[in-house]
Nucleic acid binder design. Structure first.
Lengths: 235, 235
DNA sequence: GTCGGGGGTGACGATCTTGTCACACTCGGA
DNA sequence: TCCGAGTGTGACAAGATCGTCACCCCCGAC
């Protein structure tokens, strides 16, 4: 296995593939090519490229579909994608970014800029904390974006709520004492008697809706984040 | 090297060391012991334990000092520490947590609880994103706590400010386009013309003070986070 | 140097966030 | 069953946060 980064070039136009490929190889990368959506997906699985240059317009499955599919697979989710869009097609760029592209470049583009973008993307991918997420049941914490997805739906939490819930979730199954929570989230250095925590737990529970059951009270100690025990169903 | 977790037991009382050690070994851990602060530090460096049970009261260097020293060293910073404090000494617990202990346990304690806490701590350490931080120059982003340290001083940023700065910092050296920022931080899906971004950049710069130079304008495109070029000094 | 457009700045009001309180409720021990 | 401590809840007000605007300044093209 080479130690060079491998870039997959997915475009139905051979000219484009050659131009891009030549420049990337000159910049020190290995390249693979694909001419349509299905080939792209197949190559991704076979070669596991470090980044993908993906044309929007492709026969069969277009770039949007490919990108979306890549993002839905745990194994390919992390691969950075640069999407090539038609000139000035703002719609395309937006759609691309929404499907999970990491960058876009409008055709026609200068090969030099493409190389720069690929380099930037790889650098970023190397820096990015690979696991800046925490998943527990329907909860998905995005630490980098300070966002929470609950059952696939983005939740609108305040900073305090996010910190509180994340603290509890990161200690799933443990009783977290009130004092400790107040220290970690509020920064209180002394033991205080306050209803602030209760109030915020209540607000959190309201927002969490049906999933509020994950946030349980440990009377006399604190709170605990754990999978709700299944309810016995009467027959 | 064994695949068991190695626990360092630091206590000047031999009885305690034996009791704790026996229970931990029974729970499937390997153990090492240390009887004072200096031995503790030496053992940490030699054996690189996965967790430390650390008594507050120790001759020479006490638990607080040891803990603080561990936290200041890049190589030992991540090792979870459970501090053993005298009964009801709230002061000790607070001091311990402030020096960076991850948990505390009051003497006398039940061996069973200690084992449970060690297990919890190891589980947590395994889960915790090892690199949930981003450091660039004087900037230290704590993604888990959604906090920023600037030159060692904690900065009080709002959620928006944190997201904005972190986005730029995570793309250090790259021009990040206005549209992109608005998408990532504000979630705008369409191109809008707004001065919102400018205003927030201004607020950020105010808070960053002398370090505001890292946040540079790329006229016509967006903003860029990069090390300020050294100022030529007249002679 | 002039001009035009993009960016910086200060101010303002709408809204959100958050700590506190009073009161209701619940759990668990006596 | 009764009681008390601990917790849930709704309301409120202070303060923080945020988007917008008007105005000014500066950069860069010509």
């Amino acid at each position: 296995m080479s130690d060079k980064s491998l870039i997959l070039i997915a475009d139905d136009e051979e000219d484009v593939r050659e131009l891009v490929g030549m420049n990337l190889r000159r910049a020190g990368y290995d390249t693979v090519e694909a001419a349509d959506g299905l080939q792209t997906l197949a190559q991704v699985r076979r070669r596991k490229p470090d980044a993908i240059v993906l044309d929007v317009m492709m026969p069969g499955r277009d770039g949007f579909g490919v990108c979306q599919e890549l993002r839905e697979d745990e194994n390919t989710r992390h691969i950075p994608v640069i999407m090539l869009t038609a000139k000035g097609q703002t719609q395309d760029r937006i759609a691309g970014l929404e499907r999970g592209a990491d960058d876009y470049l409008s055709k026609p583009f200068s090969p030099k800029e493409l190389v720069l973008r690929v380099q930037a993307l790889l650098r970023r991918a190397a820096t990015v904390v690979s696991g800046s997420e925490l998943k527990e049941g329907p909860f998905e914490f995005d630490l980098s974006g300070v966002k929470l997805n609950l059952g696939g739906q983005p939740m609108d939490l305040t900073l305090l709520e996010f910190k509180l819930l994340h603290l509890l979730a990161s200690r799933k199954g443990e009783v977290v004492e009130r004092d400790f929570i107040l220290r970690e989230v509020w920064g209180y250095t002394e033991q205080v008697r306050t209803r602030t925590l209760d109030t915020h737990v209540k607000r959190l529970r309201e927002k969490l809706g049906e999933h509020a059951e994950w946030l349980q009270t440990s009377r006399g100690f604190g709170y605990i984040f754990k999978e709700p025990s299944p309810v016995a169903v009467a027959v």
